[in-house]
Amino acid sequence: MSKHRVIPGFGLSLGFTLTYLSLIILIPLAALFLKAGGLGPAEWWRILSTPRVLAAAKLTFGASAAAAAVSAGVGLLVTWVLVRYRFPGRRLLDAMVDLPFALPTAVAGITLTSIYAPNGWIGHYLAGWGIQGAYSPFGVFIALTFIGFPFVVRTVQPVMEDLGVEFEEAAATLGAGRLTVFWRVILPALTPALVTGFTLAFARAIGEYGSVIFISGNLPMKTEILPLLIVSQLEQYKYREAAVIAAAMLLVSFALLFLINLLQRHLDWHKR
């Protein structure tokens, strides 16, 4: 590494970046872990082993995983259609995919609730089949899918656009049918991007608050998610409980993300 840098501004920009990063992100997060870490394992166990926390954790991670999986499926279909086919309204549709990114979560929350409530546009059909849309774990899943699916489309789309058609042509000249080409050539090439999209959707869903709290109904033990549990602890000025739940939640999501990252590397290792 050379001491002399040709492009100037390294010291200034690195200094500013590190200072700002520390003040806004690192020190506050460190404060959280210090607060939670200072309490000792017994206290952690006491707080985390309550049935209410466990139920909320199960719902949060379970619904997030289910929502991210469904997002991956629906996202793959939508990406395929947007990339491969030309039809009227395609550009509009492409732009619309980002709506969940741009629509504030509180707005998403109240509209999804109004649609999936038992008297809502979709909710009353669901009610006809005996399915409760809003105010149920299913409602949580719906909100998280809404939030997550653009992540899948936006990560898979560039990869699919770059996927040279010659791989499919090669497979076709070798006698493979369209379905075989999809399963054996296209899907494996898209898998790393799909896993990334799944991971982003999953990570976002675990922490999601605004769009969920309206549609979930927030019944402890039934439809309460972890972020809401943190808020309710805070509202009772139970800082310790809030800090421990938050720290545990962060640790579990970091561990999950790390594992998926490893899997990703395994999938990706044969790519340049």
Partner: peptide
């Protein structure tokens, strides 16, 4: 580290300042 806030729940982003 720059990506870190993407993995942090908004609720926790508020909580750290309260702490």
């Amino acid at each position: 580290l720059i990506d870190l806030p993407f993995a942090v729940s908004p609720v926790i982003a508020g909580l750290v300042w309260v702490l």
